[in-house]
């Protein structure tokens, strides 16, 4: 496959960026999107220029490091995949592909296609956990948990923190990310103990960091590589009202 790539290049956080157009030829349809970028970078290095920076690590869709905004969609034109799982067979020979970094005020650009997602960590630091110290916990089977609740919890816990929800949302809202963590713990008996403190702290941090608000457009759910459902946002809302009102 031969492709034209329009890629956002930006020297560093302070520099002004611009789109640069590249041509790549002879790309295998079986290669992944990031492998295609590897080929491009090899070409760039051969010309003694600086290769395109992008975040990536596990390349099997679980670490959440990769995340490119490809032709108007986070993680590109396939559903339920991360960028590293996107394969070139989803494109046609001769296509032009526009590649941009995640855009959101709380996700400043570090370089090229690398956005800083430390804001997500900060939200978790604020309360995205169950406060137990190592040791001194009851036996694992001491509290039975209905299977369906364990399943709901796992659905939410599947979040990989890639930020596609924020990137897709027209408001750059982080509600799906926050909801996934709140929801995971809210349905478990262990998590109920500090549910109220958790949701208040996490929502406050989310607002403070400058994420937008949720207008229920559903773009996050559509682009989430782990298909996390909007129902978790509804649960987050319920948890929040309960925490604030009761």
């Amino acid at each position: 496959m031969d492709l034209t790539l329009k890629i956002w290049r930006q020297e560093n956080a302070r520099a002004k960026g611009k789109f640069v157009t590249y041509q790549v030829t002879d790309i295998s349809p079986d290669s992944s999107f990031l492998e295609m970028l590897d080929v491009l970078n090899q070409q760039i290095i051969d010309k003694l220029e600086k290769p395109v920076c992008f975040d990536h690590d596990c390349r099997e869709g679980i670490c959440g490091a990769c995340g490119l905004y490809i032709n108007g969609r986070p993680h590109g034109p396939d559903s339920a995949v991360t960028t590293c799982q996107l394969h070139m067979r989803k494109f046609k020979d001769g296509d032009t592909i526009v590649i941009e970094p995640w855009r959101a005020k709380p996700f400043p650009i570090i370089k090229d296609l690398v956005a800083d997602r430390i804001a997500f960590d900060k939200i978790i630091h604020a309360g995205g956990y169950i406060s137990v110290n190592t040791g001194g916990v009851p036996d694992a089977n001491a509290i039975p948990i209905p299977r369906n609740l364990a399943e709901i919890s796992m659905d939410a816990a599947a979040c990989i923190g890639c930020g596609a929800c924020v990137a897709a949302c027209k408001n750059a809202s982080a509600m799906l990310f926050v909801a996934a963590k709140v929801s995971q713990f809210a349905v478990l008996p262990q998590g109920k103990v500090e549910a109220s403190e958790r949701v208040k702290a996490m929502v406050a941090k989310m607002d403070e960091l400058g994420f937008g608000s949720c207008t229920n457009t559903g773009a996050c759910e559509a682009e989430c590589p782990k298909e996390i459902s909007l129902s978790h946002i509804a649960r987050l809302n319920r948890e929040f009202y309960t925490a604030k009102i009761c």
Binding site: V132, A140, P144, Q184
Partner: peptide, 22 residues
């Protein structure tokens, strides 16, 4: 064994049987 206890207390959603046990 302590690891499993620890992780369950942390809210790790391990697979469960219909009776609610691991």
């Amino acid at each position: 064994n302590n690891i499993i206890d620890q992780c369950v207390a942390q809210g790790v959603p391990f697979a469960r049987e219909y009776g609610g046990l691991l």
